[in-house]
């Protein structure tokens, strides 16, 4: 029977030889991950201060450009995040099969759901030993897929808001101006964009915690895997 994860020891190759290290994440994918990390940090911090600005600066307006720089950083990081997202989607087509597992989640597969609930039980301390996955476990797949959708939402609403500033005729206004109308008003788009930012913050909290915890508890590498690309199985 086809399974996604496996129990107990490290994966076996056909020759029954133990493999302790598997190449999972290719270089472009790792690069995307860390670029996204940096963009999100910049975007969240600057975005927070665009909605709730820092205390006023003294002096003449001519010699200050605080909001200007903050917004510039936000827009630049937004562009980088969006280009990264496009690159990531492209890599889903040309990369190895792990590059697809967070985009094409096999929700039609019974076995996948079985393992999804197994993972839920593992996280609720109801299973004593975790299953091992070379890529993502089913719960991780769902989390990552949700993250991609939120990021897509952020890019769409973000460029819609950006297009308001660049004005009619700009590419952002032409491509994403319809979003403002779809939400009813610009203020709604602002509010939802901010709410989704908090959604990403929650994701990052859970994501980082889960990575560190799995690194320790499930005896397989997590954090170093996103640096080197290799997943180690430590038993």
């Amino acid at each position: 029977m086809k399974t996604y994860g496996f129990d107990g020891d490290a994966p076996q190759l056909s020759g029954q030889r133990k493999v302790t290290s598997v190449y999972v994440y290719e270089a472009p994918l790792r690069l995307w991950h860390w670029i996204t990390v940096l963009s999100i940090i910049v975007l969240s911090v600057t975005g927070y201060f665009i909605g709730k600005p820092l205390p006023s600066v003294p002096g003449e307006a001519t010699f200050n450009y605080v909001m200007g720089y903050i917004r510039f950083a936000h827009f630049t990081a937004g562009y980088i995040l969006a280009v990264g997202l496009l690159g990531r989607l492209y890599w889903a087509f040309v990369g190895n099969h792990h590059a697809r597992e967070i985009i094409l989640v096999p929700v039609w597969d019974k076995q996948w759901w079985k393992e999804f609930f197994f993972e839920i039980r593992w996280y609720l301390f109801l299973e004593r030993y975790p299953k091992k996955y070379i890529g993502h476990n089913p719960v991780g797949q769902i989390a990552m897929a949700s993250f991609l959708w939120i990021t897509l939402f952020m890019c769409v609403t973000g460029f819609a808001l950006y297009g308001e500033g660049t004005g009619a005729g700009s590419w952002a206004h032409s491509a994403f101006g319809w979003v403002i109308g779809a939400f009813g008003s610009s203020l709604d788009v602002h509010n939802w964009h901010r709410l989704a930012m908090w959604g990403i913050v929650l994701f990052v909290m859970v994501h980082v915690y889960a990575a560190i915890r799995e690194d320790i508890m499930s005896k397989q590498s997590m954090i170093s895997t996103m640096v080197s690309g290799f997943r180690m199985f430590k038993d």
Partner: peptide, 15 residues
């Protein structure tokens, strides 16, 4: 309920 109120509450809960 605004974005920050919801977001901070949720972040606190998740934390």
């Amino acid at each position: 309920a605004n974005a920050d109120a919801i977001g901070l509450t949720a972040a606190g809960g998740v934390g």
